[in-house]
Amino acid sequence: MGLTMFLLGLLFVVLGAVLVRFLGGVGLVLVVVFLLAQWFFSDRVALYAMGGHEVTPQQAPELHAMVDRLCALADMPKPKVAIADTDVPNAFATGRSPERAVVCCTTGILRRLERDELEAVLAHELSHVAHRDVTVMTVASFVGVLAGFLTRSAMWSSMGSGGRRNDNQPPVWLVIMLVSIVVYALSFLLTRALSRYRELAADRAAAILTAQPSALASALTKISGQMARIPQRDLRQAEPFNAFFFTPAVAPGFSISTLFSTHPSTEQRLAQLARISADLGRPLS
């Protein structure tokens, strides 16, 4: 993870240097504005898009009780609790800090999991909150988002100028576009790798916190198996937010997520949980 973050930082420096070199102060302002926008708004996108709404302890007493218990075990502040009305069985956490976090479960996962399984999934999501993974992934993905924006802007600029050149030097838009394309491609791969590392770390933290790796393995197996029964329309609607989810909502057939997934494979996650179970002396059933 350290190497991945270093490489992402290096990409940011390269892209920022190109912007400042060709756009001067405007490029620096652009970098700052995009970073602030990512910081303040991106962590709420998944909750809003999935139709999640905050629930009180009176509305969801069992869910709140599980979150209360896990937060006490982890010695962390309790996040807000939300429910999203969708049959896609999943859960996710948003918020750039533990004090501003929201943990959301779908009605689909609430119907399908047993109490110990749901508690293990909540522990996984609370691990993301405790380790500020939303902030880490937001900052990490910033480079790719900015690079993608600059690529499109450079293309629009080239079409507006008709591709004219005033001297023997390459046009500014061409240099920015080429650098942005390379940065975007590398950033895409690095952020996906970082996301997979963070998911494995959250699995491990949840298994140790609950002392029940088998419950998390059971939840993972059950949810992965249930995905095939969800309507494709619902899965495709949820796919853009896979990075937030406990397990990706992947529709059958070709998808970019099957090539560059935000999550490790189910087999890899189960193998890690089996190793943790052996260390704890509680073999997976």
Rank of each mutant, 00 (worst) to 15 (best):
T135F: 13
V136K: 03
M137T: 14
M137E: 06
M137G: 04
M137L: 13
T138G: 07
T138R: 00
V139L: 13
V139K: 07
V139P: 02
A140M: 05
S141I: 02
S141R: 01
F142T: 15
V143E: 02
G144R: 00
G144M: 09
G144L: 06
L146W: 13
A147V: 01
G148D: 00
F149W: 03
L150A: 07
L150M: 11
L150N: 03
L150S: 04
T151I: 08
T151L: 08
R152C: 02
R152F: 03
R152Q: 00
S153T: 08
S153Y: 14
A154F: 06
A154G: 13
S158D: 13
M159D: 11
M159W: 15
M159Q: 10
S161W: 03
G162D: 12
G162S: 07
G162A: 08
G162V: 00
R164P: 06
R164G: 03
R165N: 03
R165A: 06
R165T: 00
N166C: 06
D167R: 15
D167L: 15
N168P: 00
N168M: 08
N168I: 12
Q169N: 04
Q169M: 04
Q169D: 10
Q169V: 01
P170E: 12
P170G: 08
P170A: 09
P171W: 06
P171T: 00
P171C: 03
V172E: 15
V172S: 13
V172Q: 15
W173R: 06
L174T: 04
V175N: 12
V175C: 09
V175M: 11
V175F: 11
I176V: 11
I176C: 05
M177T: 04
L178E: 07
V179S: 15
I181S: 05
I181Q: 11
I181Y: 12
I181V: 12
V182Y: 05
V182D: 09
V183G: 01
Y184D: 15
A185H: 02
A185V: 00
A185W: 09
L186W: 14
L186V: 15
L186C: 07
L186Y: 15
S187T: 10
S187R: 00
F188G: 07
F188Y: 10
L190G: 03
L190N: 01
L190T: 07
R192K: 10
A193N: 05
A193I: 02
A193G: 04
L194A: 08
S195N: 04
S195K: 01
S195T: 10
S195C: 11
R196K: 10
R198W: 01
L200E: 06
L200S: 10
L200K: 08
L200C: 05
A201P: 08
A202V: 07
D203K: 01
R204E: 11
R204P: 02
R204Q: 10
R204H: 10
A206C: 08
A207I: 10
A207G: 06
Q212K: 15
S214I: 00
A215T: 09
L216Y: 07
S218F: 11
A219F: 03
L220E: 00
T221E: 02
I223T: 11
I223L: 15
